[in-house]
């Protein structure tokens, strides 16, 4: 799933400076599951913004709404009437939803309330781990189902590097958390699968043109297009 984190309040307040009629729009899909931007969080943020305005003696109209999915036109139709009442929309969806809103509601000033950060897996309740880099050229078949593109700090294709120690990466995460060495995991998995020979193959340079290095990507399924 796509995960996101709410932007710091100060950044949001700076964005909203001088704007007194704001709709906070949640999205009830990915960002709701990661407890960042669903209806509940949209209601909380709207309340926070009203509290801030009230404490400063500013008169504002700040309400919240939520779409089942901000990234699909059909669901945006369902909140269109509400959006029409507000000149400014603070979207709590991922970057995709925010852009769909901006495109769909061309008259509204659509602003981001979150930082979209990864394609993550919920490891346990309220903990997400990055699992996919959407590189456009999946190599999990060769790496025991463990992605070196996003799980190795250096995206090594022929690891582990000299910084792998006791199963951990030499790099610590942004919140000082320990990072398991992806190549230590790959090594263990391939050995367990009896694929030692795979470890000895030199993986050639990756074709990054299939990733964002090739320019913005587009996917079309002709056979599925409406007739």
């Amino acid at each position: 799933m796509i995960t996101a984190e709410r932007k710091p309040l100060d950044e949001l307040l700076a964005m909203l400076e001088g704007k007194d009629k704001v709709l906070v729009a949640g999205c009830d899909t990915c960002v709701a599951v990661c407890l960042t931007g669903g209806e509940k969080e949209a209601e909380i943020l709207a309340s926070e913004l009203r509290i801030k305005a009230k404490a400063e003696g500013r008169s504002v109209q700040i309400e919240h709404t939520s779409a089942i999915r901000q990234c699909e036109w059909e669901y945006l139709d369902m909140i269109a009437a509400k959006v029409a009442e507000f000149p400014v929309v603070l979207s709590m969806a991922c970057g995709i939803g925010i852009q769909s809103m901006a495109e769909k509601f061309a008259d509204a000033y659509v602003l981001p309330a979150v930082n979209t950060n990864m394609l993550g897996m919920p490891q346990e309740h309220a903990v997400w781990l990055e699992r996919c880099g959407a590189c456009g050229d999946c190599l999990l078949a060769d790496t025991g189902g463990i992605c070196p593109v996003v799980r190795c700090s250096k995206s090594l294709m022929n690891g582990p590097c000299g910084g792998s120690h006791a199963g951990l990466c030499e790099v610590t995460g942004p919140n000082k958390e320990e990072i398991p060495c992806a190549w230590a995991l790959i090594y263990d998995k391939l050995i367990a699968q009896g694929r030692q020979d795979k470890l000895m193959e030199i993986t050639p340079p990756k074709d990054w043109s299939k990733s964002s290095s090739g320019g913005p990507r587009k996917m079309v399924r002709e056979e599925a297009k409406p007739v």
Partner: peptide, 27 residues
Amino acid sequence: TGDHGSFGNHPQAKGVFDLDSVQLIRM
């Protein structure tokens, strides 16, 4: 391959890592 950028004085930099050292040797 190089030390990871987080150890240095520009931890905000985008790490390239287009190739790794093994691929670089072969190239």
